[in-house]
Amino acid sequence: MTVTAVLEAKGVSIRFGGLTAVCDFNLAIQPTELVGLIGPNGAGKTTVFNMLTGVYKPTEGEIRVSGVNTRTLKAFDITKLGAARTFQNIRVFKSLSLLDNVKIGGHIHYKYSWADSVLHSITFREHERQAEKEALELLSMFDLDHRAHDEAKSLPYGDQRRLEIARALAAKPKLLLLDEPAAGLNTGETTELMQQIRAIRDKFGIAVLLIEHNMELVMGICERILVLNYGKTIAHGRPEEIQRNPVVIEAYLGEAVEV
């Protein structure tokens, strides 16, 4: 393939003490791909996310974001390379306004110093005007613009999730990493979210990597799915293939039937 993969993980493993949380993880995501990462509880999905976004450093293996090896990079550097994420347990800036939340999302694009801020220089004004415009656009995409000045904690749970996605999009990423975006949402909200995620991918032309428990969501929108169990990749393929894969059914879907 001639295009650089937005994300490339080769033989990535991480050990916490004696526990191998993730073992030999491989994944390449091409621009505009929609990939799902599924697996039972404790399979290591979020650990993979944390390695991809620089929160943890892998013990072995190599991760490249936009072709750059992230071994020595901090989380904020990886964001600059074009990978923005959301969190499983929502991490919006609770006592800040929705607008400020999204503006912080665009942090890497609004470059001016404290001196510009204090003097209200031209650079400051230009960036602020742009920040305001972009943040409002993103908020209106998620129907949150009418509450732009409210504190994030005053939003209902589902809206906080969407605010988090809006905030991540403000970073104008090439790869959007969503950690269980449908967690805690009802069926109606989940369906809406599915459409929204697809719309985001189409509108912004970005790749999406999605961790999800909700089978319906993953099977419905992902073009490719990777299944983790006990830190190992047990299957990798198109949704139809995954659904038929006996190993997956045993590890994941089979278990769900027993409960």
Binding site: F76, T79, A84, R85, F87, F93, S95, L96, I104, I108
Partner: peptide, 17 residues
């Protein structure tokens, strides 16, 4: 806003660059 983001949630702030 970066100051406030650090105060609110350091991990999220880092994730936003």
């Amino acid at each position: 806003r970066a100051f406030l983001a650090v105060r609110e949630d350091e991990i999220a702030a880092e994730a936003m660059g």
